[in-house]
């Protein structure tokens, strides 16, 4: 401590470099992970890559088991996986794209499971790291969404899609000076940016929140009298863990829903 603190309560929390005190880990300890192998190459494999691997292998294996012998009357695991398909179908595709959105089901399903399982690692004990708290995954998924909705628009409306987006019909001609740059910015830059940042920032914020409360609980454990604060702090930690469980699901849902909305907008630009 280079600064002599004049305030008493703070001196407890910052009781010095050696003798305990509230030591919040530097942020790179929260989100950066050492390489497991292939260090220094572009294929550097670390904890995030491993979580990505789990998020890839779990849905693929589950769906593969189910799809080897799909029964006419679904039971057990097949019921579970089909309810996932139904969820994407009814909650995401139907309201966002419409009945002609069935062919985007595999992409949205892959997106949903990849994000959800990556997020769930935030609260899985011993892992405690959401894969999407690094910008890499959200960035890739947002670029996939961007390429997807532009591709769908160009495929169905040729180059008229860009005209529809940049020069929306029903706007006075003079206003195009104002409208076109805004539309260009909001459709092709803000959309993928906000998609990526929404997912990334939500998971990073949740991760930091849980770390903060964990550090607080552990630190308070060492102070005899301040231990009673744990009566509040620890239940809060548990409650936030439950909350983050919900957020993990909600963010996966919203990401696939927004992707579906953008695809639906490219498919039917008049709406």
């Amino acid at each position: 401590m280079t600064v002599a603190l004049s305030t008493q309560p703070l001196s407890i929390l910052a009781a010095g470099g050696e003798g305990g005190g509230l030591k919040f880990p530097p942020v790179e300890n929260l989100v950066k992970w050492p390489a497991w192998f292939l260090e220094g190459t572009v294929f550097e494999f670390n904890k995030i890559a491993f979580i990505n691997f789990v998020a890839f292998i779990v849905p693929v294996v589950l769906f593969f088991i189910v799809s080897r012998k799909p029964a006419a009357v679904p039971r057990g695991l097949q019921n579970l996986m089909e309810s996932a398909i139904d969820f994407i179908d009814v909650q995401v595709i139907k309201p966002a794209i419409g009945p002609d959105g069935k062919r985007y089901l595999p992409m949205l399903l892959a997106m949903f499971f990849y994000i959800w399982i990556g997020n769930l690692f935030e609260i899985i004990p011993t892992a405690h790291m959401p894969a999407n708290a690094r910008i890499a995954n959200p960035l890739i998924l947002a670029i996939v969404a961007l390429v997807m909705f532009i591709g769908v628009g160009v495929k169905h409306h040729k180059l008229g899609y860009f005209k529809e987006v940049l020069f929306p019909p029903g706007v006075p001609k003079a206003l195009y000076i104002l409208v076109t740059p805004i539309e260009l910015l909001s459709t092709f830059i803000i959309r993928p940016f906000s998609l990526a940042v929404r997912l990334f920032a939500n998971m990073l914020a949740g991760h930091i929140l849980l770390v903060t409360f964990s550090v607080l609980c552990i630190t308070l454990w060492g102070f005899q009298i301040l231990n009673i604060v744990n009566l509040v702090a620890f239940p809060m930690l548990v409650a936030f863990t439950g909350f983050e469980f919900m957020v993990a699901f909600l963010q996966a849902f919203i990401f696939s829903l927004l992707t579906a909305v953008y695809i639906g907008g490219a498919l039917h630009p008049q709406h």
Binding site: V197, A205, L258
Partner: peptide, 15 residues
């Protein structure tokens, strides 16, 4: 949920 996602984006950009 869509509305929340769009509104929340501002707070998250702030974050």
């Amino acid at each position: 949920f869509l509305g929340i996602a769009f509104t929340e984006a501002l707070a998250l950009i702030g974050f």
